[in-house]
């Protein structure tokens, strides 16, 4: 029996989680629940759970403060939040799973199933949580991005990303050292967070790091040539605003 712990300050919402877990995961035992940071720390230390469902806003603080207390830890985390733009950005930068309240049964079971599966193969990474806290506290503006693939967890420097290419629900990251990393998440997940770091979409399927542009080739409707030699098309509709941004540099 794997142990799961619920950290959530809304009593009724806890009931919902317990209900959904009982319906869908007979192999999981709810080993305890807590609604504030101090009791959550005690509970998790005592129970030593495999998975923690973690609401971000708690009665007396938030779950990032909770994690700070627990480091290093070796359980899987699923974040849950009603609304918190800032925290979600940090979560996206660090490749954690998250769901929004009120929870959707499909998303909920999908996230828990993922965590169960990851228990056997992938150890938790300290650098992943470190990146999360760095982004949340906003101390690290030229920061890193965590990419999770089925076989590994990559921590890459954002300024070493040359560009990203979208392929339906997959995104390929092309790095300046010519490495390529394929992750099974749509590019829209990354567009929003990388825009703050000088990334722009010259084309629906591409996101480029403006600092790694070598030149703009005007032939054939226009190309961006990256420092690593890659050529990326510019769509005619996005051209004016793209050139505007470059001119503003």
């Amino acid at each position: 029996m794997k142990k799961i712990v619920i950290i959530e300050d809304e009593p009724r919402t806890r009931e919902t989680y317990k209900h959904l877990l009982a319906q869908n995961f007979t192999e999981l035992e709810v080993a305890g629940e807590a609604g504030n940071v101090s009791s959550a720390v005690a509970l998790i230390r005592e129970v030593n759970p495999d998975i923690v469902l973690m609401d971000i806003e708690l009665e007396d603080g938030n779950s990032f403060q909770l994690l700070q207390h627990l480091r290093p830890y070796n359980f899987k985390i699923i974040f849950i939040t009603a609304y918190n733009d800032y925290a979600i950005k940090a979560i996206k930068f660090s490749a954690f799973d998250y769901i929004m309240k009120p929870v959707n049964e499909f998303e909920f079971t999908h996230a828990v199933a993922n965590a169960v599966q990851a228990l056997n193969c992938c150890p938790s990474s300290e650098s992943q949580v470190e990146n999360l806290l760095d982004h949340y506290e906003g101390t690290q503006k030229s920061g890193k991005l965590v990419l999770r693939t089925s076989e590994a967890l990559y921590v890459i420097k954002i300024d070493q990303i040359s560009h990203c290419k979208s392929d339906n629900s997959y995104t390929t990251f092309f790095l300046s050292d010519k490495r390529e990393i394929l992750v099974s998440k749509g590019m829209t997940e990354y567009v929003e967070i990388l825009e703050d770091y000088g990334f722009y979409r010259p084309h629906q399927s591409f996101l480029v790091n403006i600092n790694q542009i070598n030149k703009i080739d005007k032939s054939d409707g226009g190309f961006v040539v990256m420092e690593n030699g890659a050529e990326i098309p510019i769509s005619s509709r996005r051209k004016p605003s793209f050139l505007n941004i470059l001119q503003g540099l």
Binding site: R12, T13, E15, H19, E57, A82, Y83, M100, P102, V103
Partner: peptide, 13 residues
């Protein structure tokens, strides 16, 4: 939004 979605979440329960 935090209040509204939490309220909905309780109704869901």
């Amino acid at each position: 939004p935090h209040f509204l979605f939490n309220a909905l979440s309780s109704i869901q329960c």
